[in-house]
Design a protein around this nucleic acid. Structure first.
Length: 112
DNA sequence: TTAATGACGACGC
DNA sequence: AGCGTCGCCATTA
């Protein structure tokens, strides 16, 4: 049984903790689940997420403060932009957004 | 099995 | 700011 399944679950769980209106980077999620340096894998895990989903996958962007636009996403990148705009996060046509101001700082004292 | 491909990231210029 | 390069590593061909 794949480690893939548990890895994906870990990613989805971590992403589910991102508060409404805030953002996290792929690398940040990787760190959070103890997979330092595996940012790309986080991207793959989100790619496997069946849509629509309750997991707020749209709150994960790249470290450059942009939505990772790619033809291979077949439109999910633009859906991501719409979902972010819908919850008050400004995103320009190039996918740029205010990462600095909206970066999620996980609080050890929250949850559980 | 080897080669190419990414929803990435850090650097250099 | 923008772009190219390289390191990264699971997935896919």
């Amino acid at each position: 049984m794949g480690d893939r399944i548990s890895f994906d679950s870990s990613v989805w769980d971590a992403v589910s903790r991102i508060p409404h209106g805030r953002l996290a980077t792929y690398g940040q999620i990787a760190d959070l689940i103890g997979a330092y340096g595996c940012a790309r894998q986080v991207g793959w895990a989100l790619r496997r997420l069946p849509l629509p989903s309750n997991v707020p996958w749209h709150r994960v962007v790249n470290a450059q403060g942009r939505i990772s636009m790619s033809l291979s996403r077949e439109g999910s990148d633009w859906i991501q932009r719409e979902l972010l705009l819908a919850e008050g996060v400004p995103v320009d046509e190039e996918g740029r957004l205010p990462l600095k101001e909206r970066l999620w700082r996980p609080d050890a004292m929250s949850g559980s």
